[in-house]
Design a protein around this nucleic acid. Structure first.
Length: 803
RNA sequence: GCCGCUGUGGUGGAAUAGGUAGACACAAGGGACUUAAAAUCCCUCGGGAGCAAUCCUGUGCCGGUUCAAGUCCGGCCAGCGGUACCA
């Protein structure tokens, strides 16, 4: 009989659906293991190859963990709020909820087609009011704890989406989604104070097992830097406070620069007022992108008539305004040390300002001496002769004593802009009352359900489509009972995904986001795998929400995820990133149809290093199909024999089987799925040289089942083994049996390979050298030479050094 | 610019901790079976020399450490990702 993958896969998927062998059980006595994959955004295009890679990998882990006796939670859901759905709805005049329903149905079908062992009863959908009730509830808690606030801020405005974007959604000055220009605009927006958690988000990375590149990227994004704030008095009697990480170079500060938006500019009487005003106006007109684009040439204007006083030299220094100083970082003002900062140096050259060397070792006449940590302080009064570190300590102490400044830690991280002027998102549960201000909706009124609207488009003024629904927006103030308006902004699609993993623990709870018992049992997530592109967005946002929920006593741990790994992209066959415009998108449907889900799963794991990008190759898929054909042909006919325990493997196959069990097991844990599959292929190749007995076949099918679950179940049944192969214990290996009695020893002379010999395992050195010397080939090589040294690596290698 | 990662056959990729480079596949070539094709099975497959056993050479480039370097160190080059006037 031929390997009929189609009927086999349909059969087992039906059985799994009916009998639910992969259901997670709350409060079970087995040890729990919570494996999480990033739930998909259900786009109209269906799954592409980017989805099955992480899903298959974690499915393999989930299946193996179950076989090892864990109560595994491996859930899936849909992150369904978002712009593409809304745009599709606008274009086709279909309600976004209907679009979402269709898309999730398609995704569900495709995910089931691939044979994933998800617990489908726990499926969540962020657009379900029963779900977003709790997203809104968390928002109310954030508001209650002063972590949500509304402020007039310059926002990134996408000219095409007509929508406010988070900084994270602006890429190279254009909208991440549609590629249109992004400009700056003042708008009243909801923000979340993620900056309050900057320190904890940074420091607690030390407590979790995230792959290093994720930690590095998060740390860079949070951007912690330690320095000092220093006060500079001015001739007007005002004080300009600056932030610097180089307080040691204070004696070299020969001028100051403040941002064009600095508040003191409004207060001062400036001699060249018009010139300053013109510069401010020009800077305000520029978008963030334009401001950073002009990196090469720095511009600025001196604020004439007012001077600052360097607190250590007491000399008067000029003040400039320039847009290379950002209003949003530090204090919006800097002390300029042209001798030791590249930007200050360029600016000083251009405007003919003095450059003073305060750390020796460079040539400040030629260029700024920046990497000067090893230098010695010069021209620096009280800190002359000290090294940089000591100088920092001493000057900071002095500044603090004089009341002129103090040590200060700054972060690049900014508050999270949380408003969107869009329809397809969670309504923000706030009422705006003329008398009481922003009033939270009482919990009893949640969920605040999205109203039906006539038009989904953002209004011309940039307000949410909800703003046009006056019937809905007009309400009464929960506090004073007077007439009030509902907030019409909605939440960004990062909201629902910031806590979804908690809901999986108890997805049908209608009195809490999840019961405390369920959270105590399942959280934290043991292993979370996802894309690098979410490192500074979703991953950071959800850590923030989780820390907040921990602080208010909702969740039992301060970090949501114990372990985070990250997979590489699957590229198109042309080696380019898959995209519709390139026309190189590959979806799993065709491969599954032509070769079956098991082959598709195998190939996507065999393709290469899980953590790196890898190009798809349709022709290489066949290799995996061939492998399954070979397995089928090997095991289709019932193999006789009563013994089925691993202790009953033949002497012939003993070593290779114990080795394979060891290798496949450890490879799954360390993301090396490609070599795990290679090991299985080798084992099958060995079985073609000498046929396996019943015990050996059993081990093979058990190990194969996480990778290719359908064929494994079918062959298991054909062989007459009991139950589901996916519910068998994972095979155990015996370390002693992973070695042969004999080992091949490489023999080198002067470090060059000259041959190999067979020697008994753990052979003692003398016997080994003796054997080497007797080997005819080696003998010829060392004739008439004297062995002056021998190096032996046990069971591996002998190296003879001769003269 | 800064931070991180990567560079190995025609291709995807292997190579615990420095210890036989190229596992496992794909593609290609040759052969068996077949009327033929598909499928299957067997052989070859980094480069060079040789009938051959064998020898030389080879992991982006240059140098170093070591008995021994794809692996460690220093300096380059190229590609990918992140970030960007962050003081």
């Amino acid at each position: 009989m031929k390997y009929d993958f189609k009927s086999i896969e349909t059969k087992w998927q039906g059985r799994w659906e009916a009998e639910k062998p992969f259901a997670a059980i709350n409060g079970d006595t087995r040890p729990k293991y919570y494996i999480l994959v990033e739930f998909p955004y259900p786009s109209g295009d269906g799954l592409h190859m980017g989805h099955p890679r992480p899903y298959t990998a974690m499915d393999i882990v989930a299946r193996k963990k179950r076989m090892q006796g864990y109560n595994v939670l491996f859930p899936i859901g849909f992150d369904a709020f978002g712009l593409p759905t809304e745009n599709y709805a606008i274009q086709n005049k279909i309600h976004p909820a209907v679009v979402t329903k269709n898309n999730t149905a398609k995704f569900t079908e495709q995910l089931k087609m691939l044979g994933y062992s998800f617990d489908w009863d726990r499926c969540v959908d962020t657009t379900d009011p029963n779900y977003y009730k709790w997203t809104q509830w968390i928002f109310l808690k954030l508001f209650e704890h002063d972590l949500a606030y509304k402020a007039l801020i310059p926002v990134n405005w996408c000219t095409s989406c007509k929508c406010v974007l988070a900084n994270e959604e602006v890429v190279d000055g254009v909208c991440e989604r549609c590629g249109a220009d992004v400009v700056r605009r003042e708008k009243s927006q909801w923000l979340l104070r993620i900056t309050k958690y900057a320190e904890a988000l940074n420091d607690d990375l030390d407590t979790v097992d995230f792959v290093e590149r994720v930690k590095v990227q998060q740390r860079n994004w949070i951007g912690r830097s330690v320095g000092a704030e220093v006060d500079f008095k001015t001739t007007t009697g005002d004080v300009i406070r600056v932030f610097t990480t180089r307080q040691d170079t204070l004696y070299g500060a020969t001028y100051m620069v403040i941002s064009p938006e600095h508040s003191l500019l409004n207060k001062w009487t400036i001699e060249n007022e018009q010139e300053v005003k013109d510069y401010q106006a020009a800077a305000a007109k520029k978008s963030d992108f334009e401001r950073t684009e002009l990196v090469k040439e720095k511009t600025g204007v001196e604020v004439k008539g007012i001077r600052a006083i360097n607190p250590v030299t007491n000399s008067e220094i000029p003040i400039y305004i320039s847009d290379y100083v950002l209003a949003t970082y530090g204090t919006g003002a800097i002390m300029a040390v042209p001798g030791h900062d590249t930007r200050d140096w360029e600016f000083a050259k251009k405007y003919n300002l003095p450059i003073i060397e305060v750390v020796s070792g460079g040539d400040v006449a030629k260029e700024a001496y920046v990497d000067c940590d090893t230098g010695t302080m010069v021209n620096s009064g009280m800190i002359d002769g000290l090294n940089v570190d000591d100088a920092k300590v001493k000057i900071t102490k002095w500044l603090t004593e004089q009341g002129l400044g103090e040590e200060k830690v700054n972060f690049k991280l900014r508050d999270w802009v949380f408003s969107r002027q869009k329809y397809w998102g969670e309504p923000i549960p706030i009422v705006i009352c003329g008398k009481c201000g922003y009033v939270p909706l009482p919990e009893s009124q949640l969920p605040l359900v999205l109203p039906e609207v006539e038009k989904y488009e953002t209004t011309e003024t940039g307000e949410s489509p909800l703003a046009a629904m006056t019937q809905w927006t007009t309400t009464t103030c929960p506090k004073c009972g007077g007439e009030a308006q509902r907030e019409t902004d909605t939440m960004p699609n990062w909201a629902g995904s910031s806590w979804y993993f908690l809901r999986y623990a108890d997805p049908h709870n209608d009195t809490a986001l999840a019961s405390r018992d369920a959270l105590n049992y399942w959280t934290p997530v043991d292993w979370y795998n996802g894309g690098m592109e979410h490192t500074t967005l979703h991953l950071l946002y959800s850590r923030f929400w989780h820390k907040f929920l921990y602080n208010i006593g909702i969740v039992p741990t301060s970090e949501p995820y114990m372990k985070r790994t990250s997979h590489g992209f699957i590229l198109g066959e042309d080696g380019q990133k898959m995209s519709k415009s390139r026309g190189n998108v590959i979806n799993p449907d065709n491969t599954v149809r032509e070769y079956g889900a098991d082959t598709a799963r195998l190939y996507i794991m065999f393709i290469g290093d899980f953590e790196k990008t890898a190009p798809w190759s349709q022709s290489a898929v066949k290799g995996c199909k061939k492998f399954l054909d070979r397995v089928w042909n090997l095991a289709e006919i019932k193999v006789d024999g009563r013994s089925t325990s691993i202790s009953d493997v033949s002497a012939e196959h003993e070593t290779v089987i114990h080795r394979a069990v060891k290798k496949v097991g450890s490879d799954i844990e360390s993301l090396k799925y490609n070599t795990a599959i290679a090991t299985l292929m080798s084992l099958v190749n060995d079985f073609y040289v000498a046929a396996p007995n019943r015990a050996e076949l059993k081990v093979l099918l058990t190990m194969l089942s996480p990778f290719a679950p359908h064929i494994a179940e079918e062959l298991w049944e054909l062989q007459g083994f009991e139950g589901y192969v996916s519910q068998q214990p994972w095979p155990e290996y015996d370390e002693a049996k992973t070695h042969d009695e004999n080992v091949t020893i490489a023999v080198q002379i002067m470090g060059k390979l000259r041959g190999t010999i067979e020697a008994p395992l753990d052979c003692d050195d003398e016997t080994l050298i003796d054997m080497v010397k007797k080997d005819s080939k080696i003998k010829a090589n060392i004739e008439s030479k004297e062995i002056i040294r021998t190096i032996i690596v046990k069971n591996k290698l002998v190296n003879l050094i001769v003269k």
